[in-house]
């Protein structure tokens, strides 16, 4: 087990490092010039001014030196020049070109909104998806099952962002349901927090649950055909205990793996959700940073954060696998 954990940790670290190098190289070695937006922000940008700004920002140094400076900034404070000198406390992800603030500060301010959306949505789709999937497997072949399977196929065949957009337009704008949709920090007003995020959660939850219902149904149908389920039935256990007690325990492991793999899709869903429902999170921040004038440090930080979240989710799921499914632990 220790060897397995060590191996998974190494590979996770490798993925994050490679991503950070790749994005860094893309920005600072690629065809775009990070000094361009800074220069343009200060009025007319002459070649001499551009060159001077490049020198100030250290862009004339080799990309290896620059990356080394970035990595050192993760552990010790560093001074960053963006139109003026800024001290950037460790861990430093740079200074935003737009706001001239430390990227980590703004990230910390915006991350709770993104986390709220993602965790709420994921909770709903896991709960709803696994429950309906198990029920469909239990009622396999009935009209209820066929309706569930057909409905889930239909919903998952429509792109998520269109569902969210339709929900926003029809439910919120036209019918006036869900007033006050938006983000209020949980610590400020828990009721406003929950009511403001209810619609995004429901949309994310319903759209995501259809897939989990299908996975769960598939895994459950297989599990319910096993001999030990027949044994449990023969012992006279109630159908509910057979399905949820004995069946689900074995069928949930592959569903959890998919949850880990699906982290990327969840993040994408969160970006669309923030954009559509006007939530001021990390996703909409990244989209702002793409628009001119571009904000490379912000993009670098958000892409890196996304990669870290995906890698950590996969790591946690891999480690949790053994807890849920004892068969994996022994082998």
């Amino acid at each position: 087990m220790a060897g397995f954990v060590a191996r998974r940790l190494t590979s996770a670290l490798l993925v994050v490092t490679l991503t950070s190098m790749f994005v860094f190289a893309l920005f600072f070695l690629g065809p775009g010039n990070p000094a361009g937006p800074v220069c343009e922000a200060q009025g007319r940008c002459t070649p001499e001014r551009l060159a001077a700004i490049e020198r100030q920002m250290g862009l004339d140094q080799s990309v290896v030196t620059q990356y080394a400076a970035f990595v050192r900034g993760l552990v010790v404070d560093r001074t960053v020049v963006v139109g003026g000198e800024h001290t950037c406390a460790a861990p430093c992800l740079g200074i935003s070109y737009g706001s001239r603030q430390e990227v980590t500060e703004e990230l910390a301010r915006r991350f709770p909104a993104t986390l709220s959306v993602a965790v709420g949505g994921a909770t709903i789709y896991l709960l709803v998806g696994v429950t309906t999937g198990s029920l469909a497997a239990r009622w396999r072949g009935t009209t209820a099952d066929r309706l569930l399977v057909g409905g889930s196929l239909l919903v998952s065949s429509v792109p998520y962002y269109l569902l969210a957009l339709l929900a926003w337009i029809v439910l919120a704008l036209q019918w006036g349901l869900f007033p006050g949709t938006g983000y209020t920090p949980l610590t400020e007003d828990p009721v406003a927090w929950a009511s403001g995020l209810l619609l995004p959660w429901l949309v994310l939850g319903v759209a995501g649950s259809t897939q989990y219902a299908r996975y769960t149904r598939g895994a459950m149908v297989e599990t319910l055909g096993e001999d030990y389920i027949t044994t449990a039935r023969a012992k006279g256990l109630s159908p509910r205990r057979v399905v949820f007690g004995h069946g689900l325990r074995a069928a949930i492991a592959p569903v959890l793996t998919i949850f880990g793999l699906d982290m990327a899709a969840l993040l994408a869903g969160t970006v669309f959700t923030e954009q559509i429902f006007g939530i001021d999170g990390v996703g909409s921040w990244a989209l702002e940073a793409v628009r001119a004038p571009q904000d490379f440090p912000v993009l670098h930080a958000t892409v890196l954060l996304g990669a870290v979240l995906v890698v950590v989710a996969n790591l946690v799921v891999d480690l949790a696998y053994g807890l849920v499914d004892p068969r994996v632990r022994t082998s």
């Binding site: 994005v23 775009g32 990327a264 571009q294 993009l299």
Partner: peptide, 21 residues
């Protein structure tokens, strides 16, 4: 490696470079 990297992030990283170029 590629499976664990969201394509949306790739698009986010690439778009501004193309635009600024």
């Amino acid at each position: 490696l590629f499976l664990s990297f969201p394509f949306l992030l790739g698009a986010l990283a690439l778009a501004p470079i193309v635009v600024s170029r």
